[in-house]
Design a protein around this nucleic acid. Sequence first.
DNA 1: CATGAATGAGAGTTCATTCAT
DNA 2: TATGAATGAACTCTCATTCAT
Lengths: 210, 210, 210, 210
Amino acid sequence: MRNKSAEKYQRILDAAVKVFAQKGFFQSKVSEIAKEAGVADGTIYLYFKNKDDLLISIFEIKMQEVIAHFRAALNQQGDAVAKLKHLIHMHLEEFQANPDLAAVFQVELRQSSRFMHESEKMELKLYLDLIGEIVEQGQREHLFRDELPVGLIKRFIFGTLDEIVSTWVLAGRRYDLRAQADLVVDLLLRGVQRDCEVRGQGNQQQEVVQ
Amino acid sequence: MRNKSAEKYQRILDAAVKVFAQKGFFQSKVSEIAKEAGVADGTIYLYFKNKDDLLISIFEIKMQEVIAHFRAALNQQGDAVAKLKHLIHMHLEEFQANPDLAAVFQVELRQSSRFMHESEKMELKLYLDLIGEIVEQGQREHLFRDELPVGLIKRFIFGTLDEIVSTWVLAGRRYDLRAQADLVVDLLLRGVQRDCEVRGQGNQQQEVVQ
Amino acid sequence: MRNKSAEKYQRILDAAVKVFAQKGFFQSKVSEIAKEAGVADGTIYLYFKNKDDLLISIFEIKMQEVIAHFRAALNQQGDAVAKLKHLIHMHLEEFQANPDLAAVFQVELRQSSRFMHESEKMELKLYLDLIGEIVEQGQREHLFRDELPVGLIKRFIFGTLDEIVSTWVLAGRRYDLRAQADLVVDLLLRGVQRDCEVRGQGNQQQEVVQ
Amino acid sequence: MRNKSAEKYQRILDAAVKVFAQKGFFQSKVSEIAKEAGVADGTIYLYFKNKDDLLISIFEIKMQEVIAHFRAALNQQGDAVAKLKHLIHMHLEEFQANPDLAAVFQVELRQSSRFMHESEKMELKLYLDLIGEIVEQGQREHLFRDELPVGLIKRFIFGTLDEIVSTWVLAGRRYDLRAQADLVVDLLLRGVQRDCEVRGQGNQQQEVVQ
DNA sequence: CATGAATGAGAGTTCATTCAT
DNA sequence: TATGAATGAACTCTCATTCAT
């Protein structure tokens, strides 16, 4: 029972990701998602409150998974610079590997009035916290500029990553997102690292947007 | 005649900005916009093809105005660093001064499938070009790192600004956007300037996000 | 399930016949038909593509029924003259018995641009074929003038019947349509029968139009 | 003034015939007719009460012209048989020469609820009267069967002509309508003429529908 | 738990008609 | 008379949600 339920819940969620990614939130019909998931329309309402809830749930579930996964991986890393590098790589790789999810996160999710206008987004805060912890560690380790407020820096880092992914999604996900990872690392570190230790890391450069 | 028409077109456009900003694109009813503009529902269709066209037109018209205005202002500035600083300030001030417009640009516009999926967005390209010109000038003047591809840098700059504004909009436009200008200037310049000339500009810091 | 669906389909079809007959196609609202059928507006769209399709379907379904019914009845008759007489009687009786259907066929159906302009009307062709077969049989039996082209004669017969019914409908269906049957038989037979065998059949006469 | 007005009235009427014929009554927009006539939308309402009135007026005006014209021409003819033959020829030639008018009369006019449902149609009665007079003359001259009621015979004649024209219009006006005139004359005369004088007129036959 | 037929509120859009100029 | 911008009532169709089976 448990498992069957959980499996159907998952199937609906995956179908929703796929359909939302393809058609956009408002263009997606509940009946399409149902068909994609191989269930009846009404069944969806046994697992989710409504269409909006379906979208929000995608975000919440996936973010929880991602945060748990990232947090575990970061514990394997040493100093803040190493952690930040790793986070950036994982962030980009995650979306590269799940392009439909990327589309939903970067575009469709923002079409849910509930998501956009309610200030909840607990999971987003948790992700920002994850970044914030790295920044704080970096400042404690005297690797990061400590005159910068953490609240701003974590948003700066997240914002850059978010923008990179959005641009990639809107450009049709045609180029290799991971290839930009090192460059992004370079740019972000230049912004946040203390002066002495920076200079002369990345001069890598490959595939370029247009 | 001319003026009356133009004035009504403007009134509808402004009403649409206001209503879209308040309610979101899909939640906004054409009849609400009509009422806000003080015209009949049908009148809107004398000036715009449909609801989608209304949204797209807001973007196009406003971008054209902004680009013309910014370009003129930038011509008053000297080197690329001065120009970039000024652009950043203008960008943030513009949205600060027109918060409804900011909401439409950063959130609602992305809800128009036509806007998101059609690769047009000519005006957006023109704005990126404007940034690109500054970057190229900076590289010619040996002020900006020339090993970085212009296409990426201009997106990096735009992306950061875009994200800053989006964050502000989504946070309820409660803090002073312009106050972040100098910090953003600092962060972005650190990323793009050549090593020697950077260091030790901004350590300013004021109002902070949350 | 089967039956419930079929029954609802039928109910909507009958309601449409009634409303179209009363108000005319363009004056009929889908919501009126729904109310008449005792279903929700949206239900109609589960069974018919749109309002136009509803009208076309009335024609197709009813014609299929009529053609099958007529063809079976005609097989009971002997020579072409007997068959033609019987067809005329059945044609007029059918509409007399279903005055709403008559109104839809003779007036409203011609208001559907799809019906009027698309050259389909397969069922109409099938009905003309039915008449054509009688004419051909009549020519084979040397009962009908064989110098006349079948294509014209069958249209002449159908046209006369069609006109008789239209006149009756437009006159408010106030008189007895069947009473004209024998006269029509007389007139049509005079037109198509070979010279020798005609003369002196009908001198019947009763109820007269106005 | 008079003339200018009359000329504009005429222009609008002609434009309406053309547009109604092309698009059908309900698909025709008043603004299209205005453009075709080279006047402003509002101007039409100076000459006609509304869209329906425009359609009715086409019928009335044209019928008045036709009746006057036909009546004059028929006075040149001798007996009822000659007159009927001439009427049939004129009827078919008139529509052949004005195909747009034919489309409006045979199809679009029946889409005006006012035309179809109001029992007025004075002009139609006048035309039926014209035919009726021929029939009465024919009975007086002992050329036509006098056991048949005039009311029926005139409708039979009109109905046949009407059907012939309708069939031609609905078939796309692709064949020569006049070519059928003699055949129609033959068929109709067989129906209404007294037995002795008929037989052996038409064996003509040419172009045939499909 | 699952189904999917049925619901019905709701919104975008059209277009005949008006009326200030 | 003539204009044509403005009006706003009205209608078709969609689709999230429900509930009897």
